[in-house]
């Protein structure tokens, strides 16, 4: 569907990416149409990250205020992280930069959304926290379920085989820490997923790629899973 295309409504209500004019329904974004009770909606091919409550996202501190930080999470607006949503809620106002400064990366969860587009995030939760060291890679947010795999199988395979530690944000940002070669292999895996994510047999191809490019389990440099960050929980 392209913007301006007419969509048959099949008796359903207009949902995301659609608009009604007169008695007809039209698409407003590039994507494909789905008809599932009770909405007709467009699943977009492009666009900024559309936050949903409960999503885990990778944010980068853009501004430090008296009682909150502003994070860039690739959404239309910066997301406020209030001190009350962090383990440092005793910090006196105005001294927040002792914990997080501009440019720092954090793994946070989307807590509340309001109709004006404000996205409140929190640092309290399992596996959430500051991301130190490492590098941030990008994939389309639409591909994140593929990156994670069923029950986290895909990401587990990739981290185990490359000896890296990874944090996946639903906003398409993926934080990777490890040696340079490991990070390079993760990057190539992500590119493979991004380009071929919709074709079947992806897991096999990723396995094949990892076999081809590096040592198998245990043979390579020691995996650098730090105990501090611990195991993360993955949700597809």
């Amino acid at each position: 569907m392209l913007p301006g295309d007419e969509i048959p409504d099949r008796g359903l209500r207009p949902g995301f990416g659609t608009y009604r004019m007169g008695s007809h329904l039209y698409a407003s974004v590039l994507g494909y149409a789905t008809w599932r009770e009770p909405f007709v909606r467009i699943v977009p091919f492009a666009g900024r990250y559309a936050a949903r409550t409960g999503d885990t996202v990778v944010g980068i501190v853009q501004d430090v205020q008296k009682t909150f930080w502003l994070l860039d999470i690739d959404a239309p607006r910066w997301a406020p992280l209030h001190v009350s949503g962090t383990p440092w809620d005793e910090t006196p106002p105005g001294e927040l930069d002792q914990h997080l400064r501009v440019g720092d990366a954090v793994l946070v969860a989307v807590e509340d959304l309001d109709p004006t587009g404000r996205i409140g995030v929190t640092l309290k939760g399992e596996g959430l926290g500051r991301l130190s060291g490492g590098t941030i890679l990008h994939v389309s947010p639409a591909r994140i379920p593929r990156v994670i795999g069923k029950g986290g199988s895909m990401i587990h395979t990739i981290t185990r085989r490359t000896g890296t530690e990874v944090a996946v944000g639903q906003n398409g940002r993926i934080w990777v820490s490890g040696d340079a070669d490991g990070i390079r292999r993760v990057r190539d895996c992500l590119r493979l997923i991004e380009e071929e994510g919709q074709r079947p047999g992806l897991t096999e191809r990723i396995e094949g790629f990892l076999d081809m490019t590096g040592p198998t389990d245990g043979a390579g440099p020691a995996p650098s899973l730090s105990s501090e960050q611990g195991e993360r929980r993955w949700e597809a």
Partner: peptide
């Protein structure tokens, strides 16, 4: 359109 911005046409 490529940026996924909603518009009438």
């Amino acid at each position: 359109a490529d940026a996924g911005i909603p518009m009438a046409d």
